[in-house]
């Protein structure tokens, strides 16, 4: 990688308190244009690490830089976040969910915002549902709508929490394909947490594997390389359950 990293994590510790650490001495970098996976068993701190990167929680120790600056707060115009269950606001239509950030952070006229909302929904394959309520959407549609909302402000960095979990294999593959398409066409950088081992080989360029027992990053690299040459028996065990990509 020749470009400067967009996310830098240096010696970070995360957890509930000093006595309840989930992960420590974590260091890694994410480069522009890559899909970076945070992998690991349940309770290894994947989602907590993502929440710390987003700014929803503070690390117990260490430093996090986003686009060269220390991360401050949970809002950064250049970042978008998709939560595991979508977290669409149930009191708003899908269109209003996507328009919310545009109305808050731009002075665009309503017609332009409506145009952008329609375009975002079309982008994620949900054309024409801007007046629907989130409660009427299926799990896959909700995730797609959440991706559209995360992209409302044209972020360069997307954080995705379990984007394809809880979905049937076909829908899950569609979400994977969508993420890949968006990354390639828009030059986005994606940091995603997943335990859906089936999709790791399909979309993740590089990853780290967290370990619940040692509370460390057990390995880092491309999923293919880690599977071919696992640096630790637990990494081997982890990747042995991953089916090969097509």
């Amino acid at each position: 990688m020749t470009e400067a990293p967009i996310v830098v994590v240096r010696d970070v510790a995360i957890g509930w308190s000093r006595d309840a650490v989930l992960l420590e001495h974590a260091s890694f970098e994410v480069f522009p244009g890559e899909i970076f996976g945070i992998l690991g068993q349940s309770a290894s701190g994947k989602t907590t690490l993502l929440r710390v990167l987003i700014g929803l929680e503070e690390p117990l120790a260490g430093e996090i830089l986003i686009a060269g600056s220390p991360r401050r707060g949970a809002f950064r115009p250049g970042s978008g976040v998709m939560f595991q269950q979508g977290a669409l606001f149930g009191s708003m239509t899908v269109g209003q969910n996507i328009a919310l950030a545009l109305e808050r952070w731009t002075d665009l006229p309503a017609a332009a915002i409506r145009t952008m909302v329609r375009a975002k929904l079309r982008l994620v394959g949900l054309e024409g549902i801007e007046d629907d309520w989130p409660s009427t959407l299926s799990g896959g549609m909700r995730k797609r709508a959440a991706i559209a909302r995360a992209m409302a402000l044209e972020p360069s960095l997307l954080f995705l929490d379990e984007p394809s979990s809880g979905l049937d294999p076909i829908t899950s593959a569609e979400i994977d394909r969508l993420i890949k398409t968006l990354v390639r066409a828009l030059g986005l950088t994606v940091v995603l947490v997943t335990h859906e081992l089936g999709s790791i080989h399909t979309i993740v360029d590089r990853c780290i594997v967290l370990d619940r027992d040692t509370k460390r990053i057990l390995a880092s690299g491309s999923p293919q390389a880690l599977r071919a040459n696992p640096p630790h028996p637990r990494v081997q065990h982890f990747f042995e359950r991953v089916p090969e990509a097509d």
Binding site: T115, R118, A119, E154, L186
Partner: peptide, 11 residues
Amino acid sequence: VDGAIMSLIVE
């Protein structure tokens, strides 16, 4: 050109 402007052009 980013996505926001592209959507305006298409519109």
